[in-house]
């Protein structure tokens, strides 16, 4: 049975292979994997520890290079871009949310979000307004002036999401965004990611063990040993809000 694809993939991997060599041991993490991710979807990758999920995410987001195969994102072949061009690509088109929050201890929530926007070339006022808007969107409008030391874990992760979101990226990558959080905070983060895909049309690719995320994803990819075992789409009512039937 073919998995129905609502639109042409915005992110596309073709026969990618990746191996790590440590000492004399060579680990083939990904081997001839192909994958297409449609625009505006929340796609979840799950699978056992060490199966290569994070590696796949790093490759699709232009943080790591492949040994073989090709990756196309938004029409560019990432393998053909040099380091500088990859940085430009990530600056313009991608956002990241990591398991750790990675916030600068010295900066307030507003400044954390504002910082990348300056490098994007936005004027000061506009950067500040956009940062404030993003923080408002993740429900932190009233905590903008606080530093990480004064924020809870869930709030810190929301600041990290706002930082990624404020760039208005087409692609948002998240690696275990809820694993450092308790149930309630995890749920909040999941809701926010879901909403980002819906309301901004952002393509969200998320790696997680968290079963709660499955209910919110448009598509769930199960990975094992560097291969995709199953590719399931969520029930039609959730997925066809803006989808066009084939």
């Amino acid at each position: 049975m073919n998995a129905p694809t609502p639109a042409a993939p915005i992110l596309y991997a073709e026969g990618i292979g990746k191996a790590f060599v440590s000492g004399r041991v060579r680990t083939q993490v990904l081997d001839g994997l192909s994958l297409g991710i449609g625009p505006g979807e929340l796609t979840l990758i799950s699978g056992p520890s060490g199966c290569g999920k994070s590696t796949l995410l790093a490759i699709l987001s232009g943080l790591q290079r492949v040994d073989s195969g090709r990756v196309f994102a938004l029409g560019s072949e990432l393998g053909l871009l040099d380091g500088h061009a990859l940085e430009r690509f990530r600056l313009r088109h991608t956002g990241f949310v990591f398991q750790g929050f990675n916030l600068f201890p010295a900066l307030s929530a507003l400044e954390q979000v504002e910082l990348p926007l300056h490098y994007l070339g936005l004027p000061r006022e506009q950067a500040r307004a956009r940062a404030a808007q993003s923080l408002d969107e993740v429900g932190l409008a009233h905590r903008m002036r606080l530093r990480p030391a004064e924020l809870s874990g869930g709030e810190k992760q929301r600041v990290a999401i706002a930082r990624a979101l404020a760039k208005q990226p087409e692609l948002l990558f998240a690696d275990e965004p809820t694993s450092a959080l308790d149930a309630a905070n995890g749920q909040t983060v999941i809701d926010i990611l879901h909403r980002i895909a819906r309301s901004h049309g952002t393509t969200v690719l998320c790696v997680s063990h968290d079963p709660r995320l499955i209910g919110h994803a448009d598509r769930v990819l199960a990975m094992e040993d560097g291969r995709i075992l199953s590719d399931r789409r969520a029930a039609p009512p959730a997925a066809t809000i803006e989808g066009t039937p084939p």
């Binding site: 943080l63 500088h84 990530r90 600056l91 991608t94 990241f96 910082l115 490098y119």
Partner: peptide, 8 residues
């Protein structure tokens, strides 16, 4: 993280 977000 900044570099991931594209800050050179």
């Amino acid at each position: 993280t900044l570099n991931a977000l594209g800050v050179g």
